[in-house]
Design a protein around this nucleic acid. Structure first.
Lengths: 121, 121
DNA sequence: CAGTATCCTTTAGGATACTG
DNA sequence: CAGTATCCTAAAGGATACTG
């Protein structure tokens, strides 16, 4: 018999899947495109190799991303949202756009110096 | 001159405001209702007094919730989404519903024993 | 290029006791 | 009731070196 898990509200289950410092960012970068680890590293210059791999494994274990390995030398790997992971697209979209609007607000209301690099690789 | 802050993608700014273990849960409980600290504590039995106060302060500092103090004995305090915080409502709504659907999936696809207490106080 | 393994630091989070 | 203050632990995260 499996243990019983109790949640008080739906968002608790969401946090378990996409919570943390890096997962939402990784997922947003996979939102429209398949990405290689080296691309993700360039998109997130401050993430360490260890954290990148670790977070990608956890997202894979949760079933929201797919890992595709091309058997060649040098190795090539691609990550993408899984079929199930695509159900997160609306969530990720809102998380991104709210942040963009929040940045605008901080610029205009509070005169903060903020740069949003909308990197295209 | 204020320092320059650099973001790679919008969601990074969102995480700074609603990231962490407790903030999304607190905000979801404030999504439709004004709540007293004691109510929040009952809705989140596993949060400690310290974390509750701390997270509420941070949300207040970010400008997404309001704190209303009624000058009476015993003291009465109420927290609610601020005008600006209400811009988060669509985000919070999606975070909740995605979690609910994720729980359903885990129940039906993987036969996990999960209880979602949709507590009404 | 993609990933492991090890060790280390930081910080998020918790237990407990106390106050107006 | 709402909140502080102190101390402590666990977990998240990072630096570095190495491998197929």
């Amino acid at each position: 018999m499996k243990p019983t898990i109790v949640y008080g509200i739906g968002v608790e289950a969401t946090i378990e899947v996409i919570g943390g410092k890096w997962k939402p960012i990784i997922l947003c970068h996979l939102k429209h495109d398949t990405r290689r680890p080296s691309e993700l590293k360039r998109l997130m210059p401050t993430i360490t190799q260890k954290m990148l791999t670790q977070q990608l494994r956890e997202l894979e274990d949760s079933g929201v991303i797919d890992r595709t390995v091309y058997e060649q030398v040098p190795p090539k790997v691609e990550y993408s949202l899984s079929t199930y992971g695509r159900s997160l697209e609306p969530v990720l979209e809102l998380l991104c756009t709210w942040g963009e609007e929040h940045i605008d607000r901080r610029k205009t209301q509070f005169n903060e110096n903020i740069i949003l690099e909308h990197t295209e690789l």
